[in-house]
Design a protein around this nucleic acid. Structure first.
Length: 1016
RNA sequence: GCCCGGAUGGCGGAAUCGGUAGACGCGUUGGUCUCAAACACCAAUGGCCGCAAGGCUGUGUCGGUUCGAUCCCGACUCCGGGUACCA
């Protein structure tokens, strides 16, 4: 009987459904285990082969844990609010709810086909009002809480009100964990919304790659920074990869230093009295006039107080609130010009030329509190307003950025730590002896830092302070398709919608674009009010719905609480969280924050939501593209660069390119065959060879092209010629060559297009290995694999591809090997070896789960041989260890080895445990065979076999014998010999005599059970 | 720039308390079956020399420690990820 997966798999799945075998409930009599997958955003492209990688691994682990006796919670849901659905809605007018529901249905169907063991009765969708009620509830709770640093936890705002009755509503906003403030935000014009820091990558929006600029706007924020220390400390106890923890530590960015106040001094020439801007005038300070809240002092943050004697100037950020106040009339015009110019520069431009030094002198001076020297105050955008105090004490001798600034403005550079030559470069290292530093001369840097901390505090110049890079999360999005923020404005005062009125449902609209005045779509909704007062019109960001979803799975239908005490006490937190590393600085920070807040409220029992976390790698796709352009201008010359790092010009004139002037080439992708273009005006080059690396370097030197190498999939303009990259569906490309006719049928709008990269009359596609996405037309759909090979093969093949954590391109080479394994395994159970085609008739006899069985099915009750038992138990040991370590590729290999060693074996005592062992990986075939073996209940109610070490005992060992470290021969000896016996036996061997050539060995190393080494 | 990780056959990858490098699979070659092809099965397969026995060489490069190094140490090259004026 053949292995007919097309019949077996649907049958098994319908059995599972019928008996509802994946439903779980609280059961204190059994140990619990919680396995969670990061839930997907249901995109229109459907599931691709990359999605299931993590799902399969976690499913294997879930089934394994279940077979080991755990009550395993393994739920799934959908992160259903989001930008793509809304963008699609703007284009088509289709309501996001409609498309989202369609996509969810499609995802469900695809997931079911792979045979996951989710308890679908717990499915959640973030856009469901019954779900987002609790997202809104948590937000209101945050709004009504403040962080008490003394207690180290969140407390109700009412307590603060009682504690400090003098605080106004406005003051309280400065304490609330969810608060509204005017801040600099990442504004994305193309998307019409603000974005959180983790949604901006290199100055472009993560979604869509649109430019992002800095803007000052009134926004809702979450005071994540209040939890910085706890978020940092909590990492220590987690079973996460070190790299992931490092990323989070870096993102939190703790630095220990001191805040120091510098007096602002007026020189004689600081004629600030003239215009009344007295703050900058030191004279006033001396006279004791006009003291407003330390206004004459400039506060800085430093981690290097030891270098304070080396401070030769100060720099404040252009956005610093006192930038203009510190400016003397003489400098006013210049300063204003500089500030205006900085404002105009986008984040991206600032990143692009960080090397360029810019700045302007304010005209005023500060006084070094230790040396008493007067030092100039500058404004420059290398100082960030958002970090520390927005002002620094500059130590050019020991900070490379200050050094560059000092060089540019010809400011003095005074070394205070022995080490480098400060004329050449700054000496940034934190070691060496202090010099030119009065109090601390001769001390080591470390001691000097400590002493200065003390001195600063003793003299009242400032105090120790810890700073974090982690910023508060901007929580408003000027979009429609998200959770409404449950806030209304009662006479202008932000007030929370009462908890019992939640959910505040998202109203239905028909127009999803921003209003003409740039307001979010909800501003267009009539009666978007609460008790007559206007409601907030922005909605929550994507991370809101995913922050506490794992809690909701524990008790998804609860209408009176986020989670019941009972459910939370039992399920507690996620034992295994599986997902991509791309969430390291977004979701995984916010979710931990959210959870800690709920912990402070007493809603959840655990401080950390995800105990163990495994990052599965990304399965990438290969995307193909051609460039469409107009030849008529004759400005562009296509050049194909071959794998072997030579290049060839494909035009008539092969001398067209010169090695040294490969500058104006565009490197489309890193891996060959790459596509380059050269301008006619750079023709006259001589033919030659150039390495890809050299070409790449050359291209990178030109900023214009450097950008393109990142975003090759945007239009390229070269001397007013526009090249448009067209991504090509994978099915239209064979061996890098585009099937033009098929392409034209597929994209009729480009029927007449000309393409670059023509070779022998064929259009050669460039390609890149990247994330699978609909827009790249490189999505490989798992349905096809399931159709052709079955779900079990897909599952095992994805695991077999390589280490789980590693990213790898999708490649179906090798899938046959895995499929063959399953067929052979199936064959063990049939008298015809599973061939079927050879004509074994199928009779009508029925066994087990009502499956028609061929007479050829047979499992014998004979006693297994010691070899068979050894193979079985070796495999049990290996597979169990591998699953625990998530080394699933090697466990698949172990199954193959097992089968190779067993050869033909039809003994129940071997096949039954082996089938259970395989069940987590290939649930359909395993459960089918289980049923065929006469069991009425599912294999997943069985116990995982345990290995018996007795079967693995060896009594002899094939010793590798090396001479001077080189393996020369092997000698089989019984185990249990003493070292002396092994030595003697080895030396007796004729091979030993040959290598010794009559000499006595100098030394012998014997490691019993491992190796023998003879040293001559 | 800084921080972290990595580099093993034609390919994906095994093996790291320092002890037989290349498990398993793919691919390739040869064979069996077949009228033929496909499937399936059997065998070989790091490179070099050799009819063979066998030898030499081999885990990015150079050096070190060791009886013995893919593994430890030092220097370097390349690749990947994180972060980027964070004071």
């Amino acid at each position: 009987m053949e292995y007919n997966f097309k019949e077996i798999e649907p049958r098994r799945r319908s059995e599972w459904r019928k008996h509802d075998i994946y439903r779980v409930s609280v059961d204190p009599s059994r140990p619990k285990y919680y396995v969670l997958d990061m839930f997907p955003y249901p995109s229109g492209a459907g599931l691709h082969v990359g999605h299931p990688l993590g799902y399969i691994a976690s499913d294997i682990y879930t089934r394994y844990k279940r077979l080991c006796g755990f009550n395993v919670l393994h739920p799934m849901g959908f992160d259903a609010f989001g930008l793509p659905a809304e963008q699609y809605a703007i284009q088509t007018g289709q309501h996001p709810a409609t498309t989202t529901a369609q996509n969810v249905a499609r995802y469900r169907e695809q997931m079911d086909k792979i045979g996951f063991s989710y308890d679908w009765s717990r499915q959640i969708e973030t856009c469901d009002p019954a779900y987002y009620k609790w997202t809104q509830w948590a937000f209101v709770k945050m709004f009504e809480s403040w962080y008490d640093p003394e207690a180290g936890r969140a407390r109700p705002i009412a307590e603060l009100r009682a504690l400090r009755p003098e605080l106004t509503e406005e003051d309280l906003m400065g304490y609330r964990l969810a608060y509204r403030a005017e801040t600099m935000v990442n504004w994305c014009e193309a998307l019409g919304t603000v974005l959180a820091n983790d949604e901006v990558v290199g100055g472009l929006s993560e979604r869509g790659g649109h430019p992002v600029e800095q803007r000052r706007m009134m926004q809702w924020l979450l005071r994540v920074s209040a939890y910085a220390e706890r978020l940092l400390g909590g990492l220590d106890g987690l079973e996460w990869s070190d790299s992931l923890k490092e990323i989070q530590r870096g993102w939190i960015g703790k630095s220990v230093g001191a805040q120091v106040f510098f007096n602002v001094a007026g020189g004689e020439e600081a004629a600030c009295n003239d215009n009344g801007r007295g703050e900058a005038a030191g004279r006033e300070n001396e006279n004791g006039r006009g003291e407003i809240d330390g206004g004459e002092k400039l506060e800085v943050f430093t981690t290097r107080p030891d270098t304070i004697y080396g401070v030769t100037f100060m720099v404040i950020a252009p956005e610093h609130e006192r930038a203009l106040k510190l400016t003397t009339p003489a400098q006013k015009a210049e300063v204003e010009r500089y500030i205006a110019a900085t404002k105009k520069r986008s984040e991206r431009e600032r990143i692009a030329d960080t090397k360029k030094v810019t700045g302007v002198f304010t005209g005023s001076y500060a006084v070094n509190p230790f040396s008493g020297t007067e030092i100039p105050i500058y404004i420059s955008d290398y100082v960030l307003a958002g970090y520390g105090t927005g002002a620094i004490m500059a130590v050019p001798a020991h900070d490379s950025r200050d050094w560059a600034f000092a060089k540019h403005f010809d400011l003095p550079i005074v070394p205070v730590v022995e080490g480098g030559d400060v004329a050449e470069a700054s000496y940034d290292a934190k070691s060496g002896q202090m010099i030119n530093s009065d109090l601390i001369n001769g001390l080591e840097v470390k001691d000097a830092i400590e002493k200065m901390f003390d001195q600063i505090e003793r003299r009242g110049l400032g105090r120790r302070k810890v700073n974090y890079r982690l910023r508060d999360a901007i929580f408003s999005r000027q979009r429609y398709w998200g959770e409404p923020i449950p806030i209304y404005y009662k006479d202008g005062v932000a007030t929370a919608v009462p908890l019992e009125k939640l959910p505040l449902e998202l109203p239905a609209v028909s127009d999803f674009s921003p209003t003409r005045s740039g307001e979010p779509p909800l501003a267009r909704v009539e009666n978007w009010t609460y008790e007559g007062y206007p409601l907030e019109t922005s909605t929550m960001p994507g991370f809101a719905g995913s922050s506490a979803y794992y809690i909701r799975y524990m008790d998804p239908a609860n209408d009176t609480a986020l989670v019941s005490r009972e459910a939370d006490d039992y399920w507690r937190s996620v034992d295994l969280y599986m997902g991509g590393i791309e969430h390291a600085t977004g979701h995984l920070i916010y979710s931990r924050f959210w959870n800690k807040f709920l912990f402070d409220l007493g809603v959840v029992a655990e401080q950390e939501p995800y105990k163990k976390l495994v990052n599965q790698g990304m399965i990438q796709g290969r995307s193909n593209f051609v460039y469409r352009f107009d030849f008529s201008a004759k400005l562009i010359r296509p050049i194909i660069v071959k794998h072997g790092s030579e290049y060839l010009s494909k035009e008539e004139n092969p001398d067209a390119v010169k090695e040294a002037e490969a500058d104006y080439l565009f490197h489309a992708i890193k891996d060959a065959p790459s596509v380059f273009f050269s301008l006619e005006k750079y023709a006259g080059f001589k033919e030659g060879t150039i390495t890809k690396r050299e070409l790449y370097d050359a291209v990178m030197r030109i900023p214009f092209f450097a950008d393109l190498t990142r975003d090759y999939n945007t239009d390229i303009e070269v001397d007013s010629i526009t090249l448009t990259p067209l991504h090509v569906d994978i099915s239209l490309v064979k061996n890098d060559v585009l099937d033009v006719d098929a392409f034209r049928a597929w994209r009729p709008e480009f029927a007449g297009a000309q393409f670059v990269t023509e070779e022998n009359g064929k259009y050669v596609c460039g390609w890149a290995i990247e994330k699978m996405s609909k827009s790249m037309y490189n999505v490989v759909n798992p349905d096809m694999i399931v159709e052709n090979y079955g779900a079990d093969t897909l599952r095992m093949y994805e695991m077999f591809l390589g280490p789980l954590e590693q990213s790898k391109p999708w490649d179906t080479n090798g899938i046959d090997g895995v499929h063959k394994f399953l067929r052979r395994f199936w064959g063990l159970f049939w008298s015809d070896g599973g061939r079927g085609a050879n004509g074994v008739p199928v009779s009508g006899s029925v066994q087990g789960g009502g499956v028609p069985v061929s007479d050829a099915f047979r499992v014998s009750d004979a006693e297994p041989t010691p070899e068979e038992l050894k193979t079985l138990h070796k495999t049990i040991k290996k597979v169990r260890e591998d699953i625990e370590n998530f080394s699933l590729n090697t466990s698949v290999a172990a199954f193959m080895v097992c089968l190779n060693e067993l050869g033909k074996c039809d003994k129940r005592a071997v096949l039954e445990p082996l089938t259970i062992l395989l069940a987590p990986f290939a649930p359909h075939i395993a459960d089918e065979l289980w049923s065929l073996m006469g069991h009425a209940t599912t294999i997943f109610d069985e116990k995982m076999p345990e290995y018996n070490p007795e079967y693995l005992v060896e009594n002899s060992f094939d010793y590798p014998v090396s001479v001077n470290g080189k393996l020369r021969f092997k000698k089989t000896l019984p185990l249990g010999l003493t070292v002396a016996e092994i030595e003697a036996a080895t030396l007796e061997d004729e091979n030993a005599a040959k290598w010794l050539e009559g000499k006595a060995p100098k030394k012998m190393i014997v490691v019993p059970g491992k190796i023998v080494n003879i040293v001559i």
